[in-house]
Design a protein around this nucleic acid. Structure first.
Lengths: 224, 224
DNA sequence: TGTACATCAGTGAACGCGCGTTCACTGATGTAC
DNA sequence: TGTACATCAGTGAACGCGCGTTCACTGATGTAC
């Protein structure tokens, strides 16, 4: 999971990278530009994130930046692409582990949600924010491609959760009639909202709490 | 409710303002600056919202802007103040109406939530976004005062919902043990998240759906 | 009722700085024959 | 094995534009006496 959340390492010196035998080699300038840009966008938005500050952080010149990205919009595309990909990998891994020792769709799902809540609770620092949310509040600044990637990412959440919830509701009829698609969207909704409340109130417990409330809701609905 | 949501009127000509007998007089330049700024901030963020575009929209000069706000940060403060105030008024009104014909704390609450979902479903346009969320993804750009106002606004939601849920759980013991504060935060969480999904997918039904799911969850927990 | 002064809601011109982008060029490494 | 060429990952200098901010000033309305 470590490599999926590079912001795990923020503030951690790269010292051991040289020590460890098969240490991953130093990320490329391009990758470091993306890392810095992602952190900056989450803290002040895309417009206020200047190419100048990124190249200063990475230690190349401005022309070096334009070697890697044809313009600033191209940086946004690369950021969003990388973000959506990693997001998928994390969820795949989490629910794969939830199902590992559990062929029941409901209980595997509940375990996956617990793993997700644990992951969010044990981040080394508070969650830095969601790029999708940041870009959605700057939609007029980003191009069609980024908006499409963003929608694609959210639809992937919807489909993932809907498929699972459909399987569950086949085996366990819900205690109350419920719109499965809306219940699927509720996962992404609570994560996005939970991140925002976490950031505004500076209370790290909020995000994992909300994930666990989702789990309670699902259990209350389907487990008799 | 109309005057609380000025973005109800976007695209609607001001023609009838002159016709109606007690038509509210044309808003002041300051108020129109705030209206334009709020809409712009929700679409492209604070950094990308230029003073230049605001004064062009209102029809005054740049010096006129600096007569009303001592600097750009002062504009952010005014925006947030106005936003939090209106927000409180809307929720007050909604839950007052929910309780009107109903002294039972649970059923009044459920009616209030239904009214809220209806309000969100019947907006003349898609919800334009939440200023608190936009600013939280630009926290490095705004000053201490704006951040404090933002936290204050979210805490007001928490306290409002917690007090109500405590009253409810006294009369109706929950079916399952539940953290009342987290359940209170879930309201703001679902609204913030619901707005984001609505914007990203451009599907207006999401926000009201999520509010109704919250209502289902509360009912499932407390109504036997 | 008239006059002096204060306040309100701005105007107009100028400022310097930082931003994204372009262009011609370069040294190190990889590949074809 | 040596040479020619291509590709990679940049450098350095310059550009023009738009941004937020400042300063001295102004005409219309309100208020005190």
């Amino acid at each position: 999971m470590r490599q999926l959340y590079p912001w795990y390492r923020r503030g951690v010196a790269n010292a051991n990278d040289q020590v460890s035998a098969e240490s991953p080699k130093r990320p490329s300038a391009r990758e470091r530009l993306l890392d810095l840009a992602e952190a900056a966008v989450l803290q002040k938005g895309f417009a206020a994130t200047s190419i100048e500050e990124l190249i200063a952080g990475v230690g190349i010149t401005k022309s070096g930046f334009f070697y890697h990205f044809k313009d600033k919009g191209d940086l946004a595309v690369a950021l969003m692409q990388r973000y959506v990909e990693r997001d998928e990998q994390i969820l795949d891994e989490l629910f794969r582990r939830g199902d590992e020792l559990n062929e029941d769709p409901l209980h595997g799902f509940l375990v996956g949600l617990k793993l997700f809540a644990d992951l969010m609770a044990n981040l080394p620092e508070a969650h830095p924010g969601c790029l999708a949310a940041s870009f959605c509040y700057q939609s007029q600044l980003i191009n069609r491609e980024v908006r499409a990637l963003n929608a694609e990412g959210v639809l992937a959440w919807r489909n993932r959760f809907r498929e699972r919830l459909e399987k569950i509701s086949e085996r366990y009829p819900p205690r109350t009639p419920v719109d499965i698609e809306a219940l699927a969207d509720m996962a992404a909704t609570l994560v996005e909202g939970g991140i925002i409340l976490t950031k505004i109130l500076d209370e790290r417990r909020i995000l994992p709490q909300q994930v666990l409330l989702y789990r309670d809701f699902v259990r209350l609905l389907f487990a008799n």
